[in-house]
Structure formats: C-alpha cells, structure tokens
C-alpha cells in the first residue's frame, strides 16, 4: 500500500545539518496497523508528516498505492490528503468555536459532496466513535477523550485509505486512553490501514506490528509489541521479516510504480 525508500530528512542549524530521518525504508501493506515507537526527538512525527504528505523528505521516494507522490503539485497533494489520508493529532486540533458536527465536516468542505451528503457522512463517523449525541456541542466544551474521539471521526469521515495518528493517547487519562485504543482496535478489525506514532508501549501493542525509531533510523522491529497478532495478514508476515526485507518490498513497489501500465493490468 505505501512504501518509503531511502528517505532522509534533516534540519539546518547554521551550517550544520542535523539528521531527522536517516535512510528510512518502510513498507506497509493495505489493512495493516503499524505502530511506531521511539523517544522524543527520534523522528516519529517527521516520519508521520512525510507519510501524511505534510512534509517532504530531502531525498528518497514515497509510493502510495502504486503512485509516486513526492512530485505532485501542492493542489494535488491537498486533494490526496483530503481524499486518501485521515489525520489524528495529539493535540486534537479541533476548532474550538465550532461544534462537533462542523469539526468533523471540515475535510468534506473541500470535497464536492452536497451538504446533505456531508451531514450524513459526519453522523456515520460520529456514530462509529460514539459521539452522535453530542453533534451540536461546541468542541471547547468537550473532555480530552471526547475531543480525540471527534478528531478520529474527522479522520474517518472521508473514508480514507490511510489513517495517521500522532500520539493519539498522549494527552489523555487512562480511561480516555483505553476508550481511544478500543476505537483503534475496532478500526483495525475493519481492516483500515493505520500508522500510529506513540511513545507508549501499551498503546503500541494493539498494532499488527511495531517499528522502533531512534535517531532517525528504523532500528528494528519490536516483536514483543503485539505477541498475539496471530491474525496477521500477509503484510504482518512481512512484519516478521527483517528491516532489509522491508526495504526489498519497498523497492519492489517502487519498481511497480515506475511501470504503471503493468500495475494497472495486474489489478483484478
């Protein structure tokens, strides 16, 4: 589904370049739930921003569903984010003066759906996260857990192929955290492709597989993160493979991306 190949990213500090991501290769299959853990400053959020097309790497390539996306125009990137990616942020990022429904509707405002269709989709998304009763409540009056549920509903409302979550339980108490993790478990069972960045091992355990990132490098897979992942898909089999084999898979995707005609023919 998505593949990163030899991605690097750095920030400039005067003349010095500080690496944030260092030759990162990654392959995530459709329907896979991957958690990324690592300490603060390890490059987790930057990785997520690149996966979410909010940021661009200095070098490397990024294939999303067979399409090389780094060369897309800003307008096409915006459309891509709108239709194919859902974001869940640590700080919820709700617009406080808007009500729950309006917050969830935000991505749909940039689609061609009618008001009626938009409202219908919002209600479905809110129903999924158990917030249908609070559609008219202003976001500022919600608890942290409720805000994060609304944020998840907003990420789901466009039915995206990929959901990216940045520390979704980072600002929550235990009860709220478990409620949010329960929602992510449900999304996993629905077969959603999810990448969740966290530094909380308990949160990371609900994923099919867990990646550890340190000093900008994916240093290896944490097999103990989710020992019960026996229902793993073909992709989760890949999770048992080494980092090198992930890079091979990414390379294969990149080659496919370079031959779109073949890929189209290969589709059922």
């Amino acid at each position: 589904m998505i593949a990163l190949k030899s991605v690097t990213k750095h920030i400039a500090d005067g003349r010095r370049k500080i690496p944030i991501l260092d030759d990162v290769s990654l392959f995530i299959d459709k329907g896979e739930f991957v958690s990324v853990i690592g300490p603060s400053g390890s490059g987790k959020s930057t990785l997520l921003n690149i996966l979410g097309l909010l940021d661009k790497p200095a070098t490397g390539n990024y294939i999303f569903a067979g399409e090389s996306v780094l060369g897309l125009s800003s307008g096409r990137l915006a459309a891509f984010r709108n239709q194919r990616i859902g974001f869940v942020f640590q700080m919820f990022m709700l617009l406080p003066r808007m009500n729950v429904l309006e917050n969830v509707e935000l991505p749909l405002l940039y689609s061609s759906l009618s008001r009626r269709e938009r409202r219908q989709r919002c209600k479905e998304a809110l129903d999924q996260v158990g917030m249908l009763e609070k559609t008219r409540q202003r976001a500022i009056h919600l608890s942290g857990g409720e805000k994060q549920r609304v944020a998840i509903a907003r990420a789901l409302v466009n039915n995206p192929e990929l959901i990216l979550a940045d520390e979704p339980t980072g600002n929550l108490d235990d009860d709220a955290k478990h409620a949010i993790l329960h929602i992510f478990s449900q999304l996993r069972r629905q077969g959603r492709t999810i990448v969740m960045v966290t530094h909380d091992v308990e949160s990371a355990r609900i994923a099919d597989r867990c990646l550890r990132i340190q000093s900008g490098r994916i240093s290896g897979y944490d097999f103990e993160a989710n020992p019960t992942a026996s229902v793993a898909s073909a992709a989760s089999a890949a999770s048992a493979a080494s980092a090198a084999s992930a890079a091979s898979a990414a390379s294969a995707m990149l080659q496919n991306a370079a031959a779109p005609t073949d890929r189209e023919e290969a589709r059922p």
């Binding site: 979410g52 909010l54 800003s74 307008g75 915006a78 459309a79 984010r81 709108n82 239709q83 974001f87 990022m93 617009l95 935000l106 991505p107 405002l109 940039y110 689609s111 907003r154 466009n158």
Partner: peptide
C-alpha cells in the same frame, strides 16, 4: 489544519 485536511491554496 484546513490545509492538512485538504484545503487548496
């Protein structure tokens, strides 16, 4: 946020 969820320039 608006740009992240798909607002074009």
């Amino acid at each position: 946020l608006r740009k992240a969820v798909g607002a074009k320039s």
